[in-house]
Design a protein around this nucleic acid. Sequence first.
RNA 1: GGCGCAUUCGUCUAGCGGUUAGGACACCUCCCUCUCAAGGAGGAGAUCGCGGGUUCGAAUCCCGCAUGCGCUACCA
Length: 492
Amino acid sequence: MAQPVRVRFAPSPTGSPHVGNIRTAIFDYLMARHYGGTFVLRIEDTDLARKVDGAVEDIMDALRWVGIDWDEGPEVGGDYGPYFQSQRLPLYTEAARRLVEQGDAYCCYCSPERLEVMRKEKAALKQSTGYDRHCRELNPQERAQKEAEGITPVVRFKVPLEGHTDFIDLIYGDVSFDHATIDDFVMLKSDGYPTYHLANVVDDAAMKITHVIRAEEWISSTPRHLLIYRALGLEPPQFVHHPLIVGPDRAKLSKRHADVSLLDYRAHGYLPETMLNFLSLIGWSLDDKTEIMNRQELIDYFSLDRIGRTGAIFNRDKLDWMNGVYIRGLSVEDLTSRVLPFLEKGLPEEVKRPVDIGYVRQMMPLVQERINILENAATYADFFFVDELEYETAMLVGKKMTPETALAALKAAGERLSSLNKFDHNLLEDTLRHLAGDLEIKTGQLFSLLRVATTGRNATPPLFETMAVLGKERCMKRIKAAITRLETSKGL
RNA sequence: GGCGCAUUCGUCUAGCGGUUAGGACACCUCCCUCUCAAGGAGGAGAUCGCGGGUUCGAAUCCCGCAUGCGCUACCA
């Protein structure tokens, strides 16, 4: 790179941070960190109508959660601020004024109603629905007339009628657009705010952005931006368009495709390291085998030329798998503190709060390799916490067992276990294996029975470890309850 | 309708003129095993959208077509 890399992530605060946008931010971030450049966060709040309260905070929250920090932008400042477009209005109006003055733009007095009618008419004639340039050649008297009527105009760019604008996209290669297909787009709205087209050009130039990294949906408007750069006598940056994240139907990922906000994933218990890794891999790959990469590795290995060109479906199954990989890689202490909030929230109401962290720490090794998503810990491990187990009594009677043999085995187990002075899993295993032998039933039969009796489940972590964590008191109580169940429910 | 971009297993992808088209997720089988996971070993799964070229040779280069997606707002 000839000059120091300066990239920006420029979200519009119109809602919760979309994973697609965060993925763009990740590319920006990796690019900046890889080349030792600067990562700028700029808020494009030029649409008053769509602005959502709290969206800026959510975006920053999401970025910080996945570990993306910005060198310039809100809360950190920088030499090219302010970093909110709503605070840079004079820059845009001045640029628009200049363009009008030099004949590259003009004021348009058309009402939204007229534009709508025009579009309908053109659509009916199967023509492109772009602006018909009605106000492009108004004479001075006509303009004065419109002004006198009190109409606040918008400013449109005067797109050349002939020729074409070409550019080299670092991902897609040569791209060309005929000017005849570009209409005179609005740069400055009647409320005095700029549109994206004007604002992003003015700011990218002012902030000395070297690479504009954004989603493929922007390719079509890039020639407009280039036209503005040229008219303003500014050097355009390099353009890097990357493919979209799409839903299962291959349409741009949106709300109807379920979870679309990064914060939703946090709420469900996906780890930030998972999201960073997974999102990096949508549309980018290192090679034919490396998938699990931490932040530093992603930074070290990232390069634009390995970004692909085709939209990718957000593969939730693979995300779940990857999250499991990261969960299994956590220390018990770390996992405990991350799981705790999900237990507090997801455990049945009857379980008293706060949840005992020491107890949680003990059970973590048992659930660690059995959950992929933190919130699942609550449903997976609720039997560790509840007082009354809920299960069908018939579950106690396993394969090749009868209510009678099950009852006898349970009573025998209860007796042997009650004499144990410590509930260590090795001791439990030793004791119960012997018991199975004495009872002349298979170990699996006994263990399954005890599993149901102590947990109410058929599938749990290893029985002895589980019983050890539950502790003698809970186990004995549950075995007694199971005995009572078998004694009182005849005819199984 | 116009313009643009894209097209390799179900999904994410590797591949950048010569490979038995590789890997991962999901799926199936087996092993491990007290159940469930995790882990290990296998398996199935892609005539590389279609049709023409170029070339000794094409998933790879070129041209058509088809399909999909994106843009087509005083939204970004």
